[in-house]
Design a protein around this nucleic acid. Sequence first.
DNA 1: CTAGAGGCCTGCCCGC
DNA 2: TGCGGGCAGGCCTCTA
Length: 269
Amino acid sequence: MPELPEVEVSRMGISPHLVGQKVRSFVFRTPKLRWDIPVELKQMEGQIIRSISRRAKYLLIETDIGSAIVHLGMSGSLRVLDGFITSGKHDHVDLTLSNGKVLRYNDPRRFGAWLWCPIGESHAVLGNIGPEPLTDEFDAPYMVEKAKNKRVAVKQFIMDNKIVVGVGNIYASESLFSSRIHPQRPACSLSLDEWKTLVAEIKAVLTGAIAQGGTTLKDFAQADGKPGYFAQELQVYGKAKQACPSCGEPIIDLKIGQRNTFFCPICQH
DNA sequence: CTAGAGGCCTGCCCGC
DNA sequence: TGCGGGCAGGCCTCTA
């Protein structure tokens, strides 16, 4: 489920319930997700949650002594419950708050993560990653510079977290389609004007998806359990053999860098 | 350095 | 109805 828009939608959904609350208890029911769940997270108990922020696809639950770093992996989700209810399968983490509400983390595939970062320190998972896509730092000249001599497919390039964070498999295909750029083009072959278009479309697609509450493909739900509605806006993702919304040609699906890629062979050059 | 493949997990969908 | 195979929104790590 989670690409940047889904993570941001989760952040906005949980924030009002968490900020200003004291953590009554931190409970985890599996020893590890992608990595071991550090016992240091227990230090959150008794702390006030000051803010919920996001860097790349990581959510940071910030207190005065440090932050919980949460990643949703491929199948993770966060829900705010009005009170404790019996945990079900794959409900791995609960954060119980002084207002009685419970932040519950569910992740069937366990590709996600809960990590701890003490105040004043930085965490390895947040080091050596590129700029946020929705900031001015991510612009066409930056991409031209980064793409110099890079023969890798532009689709893989925009999904590389060292270049820019937060562009996942769905929105990579979508933004290349709306930019009319072929996903297999070598990154270094794009002109400044093409980068201007692609950068603008990436921002527009991500912003639009956030506004629609994210894309619900299988099981993504917002913090209140409601689905996201961006799936109905998708132009090419998951639409192999269906008519291109622009020219009617069947949409092609192709593996690029082991990831399914959807594009129109007529519209995208 | 890069590109490519493998791996982590479960659930679901498809074809037989 | 059951079973095996393949596939899935991410991303780290190893090999060549």
